[in-house]
Design a protein around this nucleic acid. Structure first.
Lengths: 205, 205
DNA sequence: CAGAAATTTTACCATTTGGTAAATCCACGA
DNA sequence: TCGTGGATTTACCAAATGGTAAAATTTCTG
């Protein structure tokens, strides 16, 4: 059993754990936690069900491993918001990074969205441990910028909520966007310009 | 079997169908389609499982009935956007109505969100039949307003996407908002002011 | 009230699904 | 090359779950 022990993982272990997590990300993001089955994950990973249970303690272990591993990637764009940069440019760059992530990592976005939508039963501790401190820190940073008259008076918390909502919308509600968006135009380019205008105006003195 | 026939439903039928749909809305919105069980719905409705299958053809029938019945309510705020009203006021009023709905009907919001998030497997026809024509109509209306110089140049489609995203965020991602939002302040009032500012600036000439 | 119709319960069933035990296979270092 | 530990498969199991048949009960109607 590769779990529990602190031995360095073998080549086979690394390969298979990666394959399982990648398959699981696919299946969980498309069907949700309850809708996903170990058989689906096993099939997509090219392994047998007992074999994936050789690498993970169970369905919940896979899900939780995914969530924790992806948390860092997910928070990176916010971490990169630089206190020494120009406030307006920093926030607008953050919007674009988040939008790029929605395009490049839609599975990750939907995985998190599904978990939050169901009340974050398995992720609440992670939210409090990882997300909340970062969120508070960046809210305080924006508030400082406001106090220094470098930004107009606005609500840092709800500004960040709106950035999350508008950018992740393109990944999480892709099915709806696809139905409504006219074919032939690049939704990402349009979204990018639209969000730049929306938040650009909001941040203007 | 009350289904199929066109007889007018009895008092008992109306009462029990309502109880089932209300219970189902609760359970589906909290656990998603796959995560919800007929036993849970039955328990919450105060009926036995075979009894709810006397009123509905199955789990999918309940889910589909809910989605269709709620579609009208869901689209009402957009329908109410008046072509003869003041453009800026109409759109800002729409934002507030959507935000109020996220507060007053969070179960409905999460039900739709879950369905869309999973690729809208049971709702795609409804989206094309009900949502798309309305969406196109209102996009055209906003475009007319822009052409008439009553609104600044903006992207109608993505403006509506952003309104949906920011307002529904408070219902769909409530678990996250609850973790991050400071206790003791009314998130709805703050959100209302924030969104009024965000979209108000966007719509200013 | 009597009978019919509608409603509800009891007792099931088949499938799916997360998970396990044990046998088997295989890679790799001595 | 051989043996050992890691990796994989085979054959299961118990619980959960969507659904059904038919009996029993309640409600409605004349």
């Amino acid at each position: 059993m590769p779990d529990g022990t602190m031995k360095k993982p073998s080549r086979i272990q690394r390969r298979n754990r990666r394959a399982i997590l990648d398959a699981a990300l696919d299946v969980f993001s498309r069907h949700g936690y309850r809708g996903a089955t170990l058989d689906q994950i096993a099939a997509e990973a090219g392994l047998s069900k007992p074999n994936i249970l050789y690498y993970f303690d169970g369905k919940e272990d896979i899900h939780l491993t995914l969530l924790s591993q992806l948390m860092d990637t997910w928070l990176d764009p916010l971490v990169a918001m630089d206190p020494s940069g120009d406030p307006r440019a920093e926030i607008l760059a953050y919007v674009q990074r988040k939008l790029d992530m929605a395009r490049d990592l839609p599975r990750e976005s939907r995985l998190f969205a599904g978990e939050i939508l169901m009340g974050a039963p398995r992720m609440l501790p992670h939210l409090r441990a990882d997300l909340q401190p970062l969120f508070d820190e960046k809210c305080a940073l924006i508030q400082r910028w406001i106090d220094d008259r470098k930004l107009p008076d606005l609500d840092p918390q709800h500004l960040i909520f709106s950035i999350w909502a508008t950018t992740q919308h393109y990944a999480d509600f892709e099915a709806q966007v696809d139905v409504l968006h006219p074919a032939g135009v690049d939704p990402h380019a349009r979204a990018s310009a639209h969000l730049a205008a929306l938040f650009g105006r909001m941040l203007k003195q």
